[in-house]
C-alpha cells in the first residue's frame, strides 16, 4: 500500500467501513510510515472538532416570529377569500335574486292554479274540461247549462240554433261515454 492509497481510505478506516484484510493492510502501512500516522491522527482531531463545533442558535424570539408569520399567512388566505366574495358579490347577488324571483313566480303560479301538474283526470273533470271551453267560446245561450237552466230564454231564441245545441250536447255525451269506456 502506498501513501496515496492510504490517504483516500482514511475516512473509511475511521468510519470502520472497510474489510478486515484492507484494515490490516492499512495498519501495516501505519507501522512503516510516520507521515501517514501523523495524517491519521490529524484527521481524527479534525473530525472531533467538527462534531464539537459551536452551533449557531436561532434568535430568542424565533418561535414568536414564526407564529406571526403563520397568522399572517392565515389572514392572507382569508383576505383572498374576502376579495373573491367582494369581486363576485354583484353577480352572486343578482343570481340569488333571479333564483328567488323564479321561486316566487312558481309559488304564485301554483297558488293560482293548484294541482295543475300531476292531475288525475276524473270523468267530471273531463266533462268540465271539454264543456267549459265551449261555454267560454260560445255565446251563453248556446251552452248546455243555459239550455237547462234558462229554457224560457232559449225558447225565445231561434229554434234551429237550439236544435244544433242539442246535437252538440249529444256529441259531448257520446265522447264522455267513449272516454269512460277507454278507462
Amino acid at each position: 500500500m502506498n501513501c496515496y492509497r492510504f490517504e483516500t481510505l482514511i475516512s473509511d478506516y475511521l468510519g470502520n467501513n472497510i474489510s478486515h484484510s484492507m484494515k490490516s493492510e492499512m495498519e501495516k502501512h501505519l507501522g512503516e510510515c510516520p507521515n501517514c500516522r501523523a495524517k491519521l491522527e490529524d484527521m481524527k482531531q479534525i473530525l472531533h472538532s467538527l462534531h464539537k463545533l459551536p452551533k449557531l442558535q436561532t434568535s430568542a424570539n424565533f418561535n414568536e416570529k414564526l407564529m406571526e408569520k403563520i397568522e399572517h399567512h392565515k389572514s392572507k388566505k382569508k383576505f383572498i377569500f374576502k376579495q373573491f366574495v367582494y369581486k363576485y358579490s354583484q353577480p352572486l347577488s343578482t343570481a340569488a335574486a333571479v333564483i328567488i324571483l323564479l321561486f316566487g313566480v312558481y309559488y304564485i303560479y301554483n297558488s293560482i292554479f293548484p294541482n295543475m301538474p300531476n292531475q288525475k283526470i276524473s270523468t267530471s273533470e273531463i266533462q268540465n274540461n271539454i264543456l267549459n271551453p265551449t261555454q267560454l267560446s260560445q255565446p251563453a245561450n248556446n251552452s248546455i247549462n243555459n239550455l237547462q237552466k234558462k229554457p224560457q230564454y232559449v225558447k225565445a231564441e231561434n229554434d234551429d240554433s237550439s236544435e244544433t245545441n242539442i246535437d252538440q250536447r249529444n256529441n259531448f255525451e257520446n265522447k264522455i261515454k267513449m272516454v269512460n269506456k277507454e278507462k
Binding site: D42, Q45, I46, H48, S49, K52, L53
Partner: peptide
C-alpha cells in the same frame, strides 16, 4: 476537550 484540540474553532470554520 476542544480547547485542547490542535485546531481552533475559528480556523476550522
Amino acid at each position: 476537550n476542544s480547547i485542547n484540540s490542535k485546531y481552533q474553532m475559528k480556523y476550522i470554520l
